[in-house]
């Protein structure tokens, strides 16, 4: 419109009007543009967690895991936990739970503990050959942070899916502090050695880590 008005003026008036840079249009109102990223972190589907869990238990079937896990009150039965993990129940149209709640974390904690304790028993306590270990597939020496970091990297890859070198710089240190605390707390062998108990604690913390529980 303005251009045609200018042309008209140019046509009607004497002489040439020099073009000038267009001035910014005055704003009439603000329009909010939503440029926030739409992606979100979401919980691992319970089916994925269960499949991974069975794999970490050496590829056992669920009922075999249940039998192996039960001694010393570590585990009840799968049917006690499945719904709390967020599994849908199509029989009663109970939808999948996609958000965590305290009870879900408590359930993941219970499952994490039994996995790590049993893995420590199998891999470390009875000194299973390295190539037959699923979880603690490393030399469990942890006299220093450097020694600890070797094993920690194995666990980090197992449960979080990436090497610890790419994790925040203080992560290994934090977990080594946990390791030291638990080791110091369990001076006597009961029923695992202090080191074994400490590794089980590190494992339990990693399997419950937000980066393990989220997609």
């Amino acid at each position: 419109m303005r251009a045609s008005a200018l042309v008209l003026l140019a046509a009607c008036g004497a002489g040439t009007v020099k073009p000038s840079a267009p001035a910014p249009l005055p704003a009439e109102h603000q329009v909010v543009l939503d440029t926030t990223p739409k992606e979100r972190r979401r919980m691992l589907p319970p089916e994925v967690y269960l499949r991974a869990y069975l794999g970490w238990f050496g590829g056992l079937a669920p009922l075999d895991v249940q039998n192996r896990a039960r001694p010393k009150g570590l585990f009840d039965a799968w049917e006690d936990y499945l719904s709390a993990l967020g599994l849908p129940d199509y029989k009663i149209d109970l939808p999948r739970q996609t958000q965590s709640n305290t009870l879900m974390l408590a359930t993941l904690g219970r499952l994490g503990e039994v996995l790590c304790v049993r893995a420590a028993e199998h891999d470390l306590h009875v000194k299973t050959p390295l190539d037959q270990r699923v979880v603690f597939a490393f030399d469990p020496k942890a006299g220093s942070l450097d020694e600890f970091s070797v094993g920690f990297d194995v666990l980090h890859r197992t449960f979080l899916g990436y090497p610890v070198r790419l994790a925040p710089a203080d992560r290994a240190q934090k977990f080594y502090a946990l390791f030291d605390e638990v080791r110091a707390r369990h001076k006597a062998k009961n029923p695992l050695s202090p080191d074994e108990t400490a590794w089980a604690a590190v494992c339990a913390a990693l399997v419950q880590h937000p980066e393990a529980e989220l997609y």
Binding site: K72, G73, L74, D76, A77, D80, Y81, S83, A84, G86, D89, L94, Q97, N101, T102, L103, M104, A106, T107, R110, E113, V117, V182, P191, L192, T197, A200, A201, A204
Partner: peptide
């Protein structure tokens, strides 16, 4: 906190003292 029955709450809260 969604649970199928009140009974399962206790099971998830249970912890053994045998190791930790």
């Amino acid at each position: 906190l969604r649970v199928p029955s009140a009974a399962t709450i206790a099971k998830s809260l249970a912890r053994s003292d045998a190791y930790f």
